[in-house]
Simulated assay, not measured.
Amino acid sequence: MTTETGGLMDFALSTDQQDLADAERAWLQKHDPILERRPSIDDGPATISATMRKHLTEAGYAGLLTDEVGATNVDLLLLVEAHGWAGSALPLAEVAIGSALLEAMGFPRWRDAAAGEEIVIPVRPSTPAGLDIELTDDGLRIHGTTAPATGLVDADRIVLIARAADGGDVAAVIPIDDVGVRVRETLDLLRSWAVVDIDLTVGAGQWASMPAGTADTVTEQLATFRAADALGCADRLLGLAVDYAGQRTQFDRPIGTFQAVKHHLANMALAVEASRSTLWAAALALDDDALDDGALDDDALDTDRTARALAVSSAVAFACRSAGEVAQLALQVHGGIGFTWEHDVHLLLRRIKVDELLDGSVSDHHRRITDLRAGSTGTS
């Protein structure tokens, strides 16, 4: 729910949104993904469990962003934060974005993805020049390597979203068996990460031209939800640190009564709450219908897109940096036990470190903010 007062926007979750977030956390507590992952952590990349896949299908989360369901990026943000908090391997944001892209393309089987019956993962070029995409007489010719994405080891299809050689945005649906998936080793032991090598021509019915700005929107969504995952991990680490500080004693007193530890916990709590607020603002910017309904002229559209990009990059840079700081403080509060393999602290810290680097690092987003502000000043 949003209201405007004196030019400022106030935002609060609706009752339904709060219930959604609470219910998802309760389900994740009951089906602890980290506990389920522990026995196979040395055996290979994390995969989506049968329990999690069933949950995805029954809850209908894969279709959240489709027009047919009509949920918002804010709704999805709440769920992604919950899955980050739990250390889940489910690429919830990716499957929701993938389904929405298939619907926008008019792909005949998009409802299979929206129902969770197929896992479709969106992928992007590793760099602006990372993929060669050209329209030929036979279809859309694609050659190159994508940026790292999570969930590809479980995917049935990928949906590539990119800018073609002529400058237009295109999307292509490709069965996973038609491309090469290279699993990458990362610090993150709770999710799988891989890149896709593509060298093929996609025929009619498997690709579509997309509205201008689609590739940028997907990039901004992925970055926002990556930061929301880091926020969820940071929130979990805050809870673990508070619990430990109340139980661990020194000099016959809980360490949580010492001033230095209190300051650590207070700084962690402040970072988590401030990050949550900035990411809500980013999700609200992504939900701005004016960018998609054709109601704005070109100048106003450019201004709104710049404002959205600034909201996203500002939130992502702040939230990811803050999550890293929370992780380090959590490690300090736990002391020696935080370094042990058996404790969950290092698993969440590792996950945050990967979230900090992928879909735009903190430095990348700081640079983008500078460029956007410079461009805005230059055109004013």
Rank of each mutant, 00 (worst) to 15 (best):
Y244H: 15
D302H: 08
P211K: 00
L200K: 09
I255G: 06
G294V: 11
T201E: 06
A307H: 12
L301D: 07
Q206D: 15
D293I: 05
G246I: 08
G205D: 07
R276A: 12
V316W: 00
H264R: 14
A269V: 06
L265V: 13
E273I: 00
I198C: 03
A309P: 01
A282R: 03
G239S: 13
H263W: 14
A311M: 10
F225C: 06
L310F: 01
G205K: 07
D252P: 00
L310H: 09
A311P: 01
T278D: 10
I198L: 10
V272K: 02
Q250S: 10
D288V: 09
V316T: 14
Q250H: 05
A269L: 03
D297M: 11
T217R: 13
A271E: 03
A245K: 03
M210N: 01
L291F: 06
G246C: 03
D302Q: 12
G232A: 11
T224M: 09
L301M: 13
L265T: 11
S277W: 04
F258E: 12
A215K: 01
G294P: 06
T201S: 09
G203L: 06
A230M: 06
L286E: 01
D287A: 06
T217V: 09
D298M: 13
R236Y: 08
L270G: 04
F318V: 11
A290H: 05
G203S: 13
A234P: 04
D298Y: 02
D299P: 00
G213I: 12
L270T: 15
